[in-house]
Design a protein around this nucleic acid. Sequence first.
DNA 1: CCTACCGATCGGTAGG
DNA 2: CCTACCGATCGGTAGG
Lengths: 205, 205
Amino acid sequence: MLVYYLRLMARIKIDKNSSRKEVIVAKAAALFREKGFKAASMRDLAESVGVEAASLYNHIKSKTELLHELCFGVANRFMHKMDEVESQKIPAIEKVETMIRFHIDEMINHYEEVYVSDREWKHLSDPYLSNFQNQRRMYRKRFAALIEAGIRDKEIKKIDAPTAVLILLHAIGGIESWHRSTQKISAAALTDNMITILVGGLTNK
Amino acid sequence: MLVYYLRLMARIKIDKNSSRKEVIVAKAAALFREKGFKAASMRDLAESVGVEAASLYNHIKSKTELLHELCFGVANRFMHKMDEVESQKIPAIEKVETMIRFHIDEMINHYEEVYVSDREWKHLSDPYLSNFQNQRRMYRKRFAALIEAGIRDKEIKKIDAPTAVLILLHAIGGIESWHRSTQKISAAALTDNMITILVGGLTNK
DNA sequence: CCTACCGATCGGTAGG
DNA sequence: CCTACCGATCGGTAGG
């Protein structure tokens, strides 16, 4: 039995073990999104992966580790996009619009992870929790700085930049309701409408 | 001991028992907001109320009942406001702005309940769950109808009304971040900024 | 109001 | 990969 198992492990490692953990993380994202982190059990996750609960621990360290990976994976993508956009030589309002479009695109195409990262990060435990909160705070400051630059250049209305950021980010989170709805307009139409309303709210068009 | 307890109960009923449950519901709102419904335990709640966990059940039927009361309490307030606003004889755009202001005000002044109702309703169980989802869907349709009326009257840009609703409601939910932040602008300034951006996004100002 | 306690479920480990 | 199982914690009840 043991011999059989070891042979099995070796085979898995060679063939496809590299993707085994990715499958677990992806299934976890869907499950945490649907039920919430606390309400989703490792037994639920095991069932959705197709193994027994104990077997999950051959691929992951803990339930919380799954949340770390999801939250920081998403946070890193946004940080890198911010780096890229900040260094571009385009008007501030275009930088803001680029970031808004990126957020919309992420929320449409990587719904589960982004949603979980947004709503379930509270359940991170403390070395990670403070780290995540700091990253988040810095990100929002950098976003607000883009908006403030737009205000200085008269491209954007005189508004409180941190308030604008909070509106933008949460408004885009509303794509959750679009995903849930039965009669969806197309992703392109959704994006156009959101850009019209949100960019229109910042400028005077 | 039993005699003492019965006398105590009688006294409580006369003096202040009417508010005892309200205290528990209010503390539950704060706790569910902070930790999430699933992660908040009845022992946590008991501690915050100042009694033993078992004693809570002299005032409430179950943990879920607390969630019902919070969710439907909030939903009813919004429904009644919608009734009132719909029957007013004012331009559609003013109806929309009135509703936006009401949402902002609710989110500022009844933060905990509104937040819990918004984020934790998933954990309702099924007679209540469908009921809540139906109410929510109807509310959003009525909100969208106000916006569509505004579009017909050329007061509002040509946009997809359901998308606009989703943006508005989620954007206002961003007041959560305002509550959390250490350097808050005033509630009045927050409201002004939100109205500028959101109403500006719908119209052409 | 409290003490005592129960059955269910949880995340995770041992061992093969 | 699985079976077997553990300690902790949960919502809730009995009884006074």
